[in-house]
Amino acid sequence: MSAHHPHAIGGLPPEELPQLYLNGVSRAFEGFKAINNLSLVIEPGELRAVIGPNGAGKTTMMDIITGKTRPDTGEVLWQQTVDLTKLDEADTARLGIGRKFQKPTVFESHTVADNLALAIKADRSPWATLFHRADVAEAARIDELLGIIRLGDKRHRMAGDLSHGQKQWLEIGMLLAQDPQLLLVDEPAAGMTDAETMLTADLLKSIAGERSVIVVEHDMEFVRALGCKVTVLHQGSVLAEGNLEMVSAMPEVIEVYLGR
């Protein structure tokens, strides 16, 4: 099954349906085509790296998937059933799409534990949060998440006091707390030390399998460490797709990255 044969999808059993399906998606901003006839299929549990030069449309692609930006044309389907172009950020988050921003964004005036508690999947209505009471299950889940992101000793620290790398990890922890089926991760290794970068790659690899993960990244070492299928975006559409060795050997990819 590939992005070029979307019609083959129809007859598959539900568990084989793609997690995310973009077909012929375009979006222009004042004449500039940020996304141009983009098609992409992400399988359940798949780890995918998306690379591309600045302005290739990576952020706009994520904005479209999460309902922040509406495409001008094209289909964006969740498990082949839900039309994501009709939803907004809160809807897509509740559906199971988690998004990590490029600049680490955590709630600086809340503690690390509170940041996670606020992200844990639960009823998000004002009424429910007004009368919410913390329980044992929630505390256990926070402990578990703190272990995964290695911030157990920072539990009661204000998130604003964390280092850049720790904030990146906290944000990934908040994503996991949401229990999403698809994670969109924008440059998770930015500003990290080499050791942190490798730990982050391991973390993302361990998350994939259970959940689908799309990683947008500039750092080729990091992409290599992920060891997954790579999609190269250029001028808003897919230039190449395959493993890193294959795409990095393609003349058109080399030209986009190194040429001109």
Partner: peptide, 15 residues
């Protein structure tokens, strides 16, 4: 307070 400090983050958490 989340809305005050990081409105967009709050939305992407589903609030």
């Amino acid at each position: 307070v989340c809305v005050r400090d990081a409105e967009s983050r709050t939305r992407f958490l589903g609030y």
